[in-house]
Nucleic acid binder design. Sequence first.
RNA 1: GGCCCUAUCGUCUAGUGGCCUAGGACACGAGGUUUUCAGCCUUGUAACCUGGGUUCGAAUCCCAGUGGGGUCACCA
Length: 435
Amino acid sequence: MKVRTRFAPSPTGFLHIGSLRTALYAYALAKHSGGDFILRIEDTDQKREVEGSEEALQKTLKKFGLEWDEFYKQSERLPLYRNAAEKLVKNGNAFYCQCKPKNSKEEGFSSSLRDPCRDKGLTSGAVKLKVPEDKIVSYTDFVHKKEISWNTSTVYDATLLKTDGFPTYHLAVAVDDTDMNISHILRGHDWLPSTPIHLLVFEYLGGKRPEIGHLTDILSAETGKKLSKRRDSVFAEQFVDDGYLPEALLNFVMLLGWAPKDNRELYTLSEFVENFDIKGFQEANPRFLTDKLDWFNGQYIRKLSDESLNSKFEKQNAKFAELSEGKQLEITKLVKDRLKKISDISIIAKFFWEEPNIDKDLFGKNYKEHLQKAKEAIEKNIPLDQVPKDNNFKVGDFFMDLRIAVTGMKFTPPINESIIILGKEETIARIKKVL
RNA sequence: GGCCCUAUCGUCUAGUGGCCUAGGACACGAGGUUUUCAGCCUUGUAACCUGGGUUCGAAUCCCAGUGGGGUCACCA
């Protein structure tokens, strides 16, 4: 069976890391079966719409390789929703309401589930769902692999069509997923509580209801709560800007909420699609810890060719880009094994284009002697390895002092090679400064 | 508070009744390689929320409790 899935973001901002994961899973679910992945923009709330975010969303999806086969915008499909709403009213499954919109945040939890307009027989206004009393609605969640059910007495008369003629999510999702022949709805866990509404709407509208699955929430490592844009970095682009490779971020995120039987961890997008198994979804909420992300990023950095890593450095750091091509590539080779993030180049290689500020406390106690001999060796072109042998220095201590004098840091590329790139003059000048 | 989801090392997880004295990965510790660090190799510490059942046998099934999360808009 060919699976058809959709990713349905609202154009209210940049792509959230959780949304990226949802999109990835929906993509893999469809593509694993040779089916289609659909992008649907849910722009039914004009007030919240953010200029340019639709384009930004598309750009980011493409950056991660998640290409869609079909594209829709809900604002271009308004008549469909109106017709559906009218049909529901006609069939007695919905009613018009003229109450002023409420806001649960202001009113607390006590408000009644039943709307005062449900039996007034109004002929205009917003359209709301006429929820039946004491009926069980249920479905089998394909993420949780179990049946989930509600008594409709706990479900409120949700608004389906707003007075501005736009549908709410509850109506739009049922209309569109039926109309677009979606076979599997994959969405965030936050939708689970409103699923009984959708179940009812699907039932009243008729037609085949898609399978439904609710993904876990990604929890903040710090707070243990759902990731929030206020407190946490949550946007995919933020991570890319911060020096993470899209491939690494994607690989990291794919294992937050899904796992294969064999515990394999490294997957390219196409490998993931190939190995994807709908049974692999996780039921408990994972925490977003960057330790593992850093590890993935290191893995992917090391897989890059020197040339492509080099060009990433050029884009990342202007000073690096000013270096000669030959020097750039030499530096790239030296630091490749030492990076967690692309942006680390600005720290680890800074001493190549900027004279370091030396914190003398970093030096060992014999540093003057070490540096004096190092300077002499460099001047006379004697290999530096020879110096500790000739002078009975501790190898590690000697090179550490030299490293600090030249770079200002304890963690740097290999020091001999670095000195060659830096040049004899400059190296000696830096050593003299601290002697 | 109502409704819903959930519970294996610090973290991500494997595990679907006996193969589990619970496996892998990250992180952390130790050792090795090495010119420090990193990387790489070897290795160590570390977990089945609690209480009841079911069963010859339970991390695995059931129930309760507790903990965690979500949600309760003319937002998605």
